[in-house]
């Protein structure tokens, strides 16, 4: 099956091609993003330090990311726990509705939220972006947390209750510590999604742009492109670090609950 391996490698090149070009052009000493390369420079990275609008956008994105990740992880814990532990009426339609944003085009989520917010007379702020991001991050949180909760041995909790713990006590002392790696992974994934999300932020942001909205505004100016490349390189490094941490916690969680590793996220 040699041709299949060759195909797989060609495919990986296709997958990594754009990502690999980012660092190449961010160190390239030319204002035009094209080959041939002109020599090595770090000036585009230095330039980033002096852009105030970028720093504002970064701070705004970090705030939105942290709040959205926290909210969607909390909502995810509720739903994942309820769906893996209890049987209740209308479970399938309720879970279906909660998971819907996973396939719904983001523009539909964005415009429908925009219309409601305008009708209610809300002004657009970071909080309106948070509302949208929490909505789209929650299904991802549930997907990750469900596998953590599913792997749990229910008898541990039963034993705690039989030994006189309250139900909340059993949950907080037995269940939560066991699913903590899943919670950390869910938080990091939700944070990464929020940091990267463009359309909802584009529609729902007020005067303060998020990082992707800022980047979008810069893509129109050819002169700014090299520093945008440098920024992209930094973002890739940051998300690789976050994802490695998330993957580490996810694997640790799976080992802790004794389940079989089914590979990657999603």
């Amino acid at each position: 099956m040699n041709w299949l391996r060759v195909y797989a490698i060609v495919y990986l090149v296709f997958l990594y091609l754009p990502v690999l070009l980012l660092p190449v052009f961010s160190f390239n000493d030319a204002t035009v993003i094209a080959f041939p390369l002109q020599g090595f420079t770090t000036q585009w990275f230095k330039e980033l330090a002096g852009i105030d609008a970028l720093h504002g956008a970064l701070k705004n994105s970090l705030f939105i990311g942290i709040v959205s990740a926290t909210l969607s992880t909390i909502l995810g814990i509720c739903a994942a726990r309820a769906s893996t532990r209890y049987r209740f009426p209308f479970k399938a339609p309720i879970m279906g509705a909660i998971m819907l944003p996973l396939v719904l085009p983001e523009i539909i989520v964005a415009v429908s939220l925009l219309v409601v917010l305008m009708q209610l007379g809300f002004s657009l702020t970071s909080w309106t972006v948070i509302m949208g991001h929490t909505l789209i991050c929650t299904p991802f949180a549930i997907a990750i947390l469900s596998s953590s909760f599913q792997g749990l041995d229910q008898s541990l909790e039963e034993a705690a209750v039989d030994l006189g713990e309250t139900r909340w006590g059993a949950f907080s002392k037995i269940i939560l510590p066991l699913v903590t790696p899943g919670i950390v992974a869910s938080f990091l994934i939700a944070f990464t999604i929020s940091m990267d999300e463009f359309i909802i932020a584009f529609f729902l942001t007020g005067a303060d742009p998020t990082l992707p909205v800022y980047i979008w505004s810069q893509l129109r100016f050819p002169k700014r492109l090299p520093s945008v490349m440098a920024l992209g390189t930094l973002l890739i490094v940051a998300s690789l670090v976050l994802l490695s941490i998330a993957e580490y916690f996810r694997r640790r969680g799976i080992r802790r609950t004794g389940a079989k590793d089914s590979g990657g996220f999603l």
């Binding site: 990502v19 990267d196 973002l235 998300s239 690789l240 990657g264």
Partner: peptide, 11 residues
């Protein structure tokens, strides 16, 4: 396979 997709979609 999944790594490249955690980088900015815009970029």
């Amino acid at each position: 396979i999944t790594i490249p997709f955690w980088t900015s979609y815009l970029l």
